[in-house]
């Protein structure tokens, strides 16, 4: 009587046949190929004028539309554009142009997106919040650490300081920014 009531049981507890065992023995016996542990950097890609940069998502807070910037009286620091309203709080808006020594204007082939909007990027590191305007934000992508290249010699000395390396991607050269140095520099320049 029991056998009739549990046919599924019978199905699931039947002994495997010979061929089946053979097949799986061979498969388990195969030498295991050690999977390479890829360390990926997750970077937000954005463009300022002519150049593309990647910034670690660890410090990335959010992207927003261009906002009204209020100048700061007495301030002569060329890096500071002024004050903006981010999420109901007044924050400092800087420009990375001077810091990264970005010269030249954008050219035709620079863009990656089909429609280009200028935006502001908000980053946060260790209690400090910084906002800077960019010409284009493309998105967040993973980059294999093995593929990172040295900063070429002809990149200017001052901006090269801030790059950990360079990625070649979709025909563009993406400068991988050193976020710690960047924030440190911003903090000390105030």
């Amino acid at each position: 009587m029991e056998d009739e009531f549990y046919p599924a049981d019978k199905l699931l507890t039947r002994k495997p046949d010979h061929d089946y065992l053979e097949e799986w023995t061979t498969m388990v016996q195969k030498e295991k190929v050690a999977r390479k542990l890829t360390r990926d950097y997750s970077l937000l890609l954005f463009r300022i004028h002519h150049e593309w940069f990647g910034l670690s998502t660890a410090v990335f807070n959010h992207v927003c539309e261009n906002k009204a910037i209020h100048s700061i009286p007495f301030k002569k620091n060329p890096m500071i554009l002024g004050l903006v309203n981010i999420g109901g709080q007044i924050r400092v808006c800087v420009t990375l142009d001077k810091l990264l020594n970005i010269s030249g204007s954008a050219e035709k082939g620079d863009e990656l997106s089909s429609v280009v909007y200028d935006r502001m990027i908000v980053i946060e590191q260790e209690e400090n919040v910084w906002v800077f305007p960019v010409d284009e934000v493309y998105g967040i992508f993973q980059f294999d650490v093995e593929k990172m290249e040295n900063v070429p010699v002809n990149v200017s000395k001052s901006s090269a300081n801030y790059l950990k390396g360079v990625f070649l991607w979709k025909g563009k050269r993406i400068g991988f920014l050193d976020e710690e140095l960047l924030c440190y520099s911003l903090k000390t320049s105030l």
Binding site: I72, P73, F74, L83, Q89, I90, V92, K187, L190
Partner: peptide, 18 residues
């Protein structure tokens, strides 16, 4: 509104608003 304290005390300015 308090202005981001990273600037310290701004000369001539006490605070901000919207």
């Amino acid at each position: 509104q308090e202005v981001d304290p990273v600037l310290g005390k701004m000369p001539g300015i006490s605070s901000g608003a919207f």
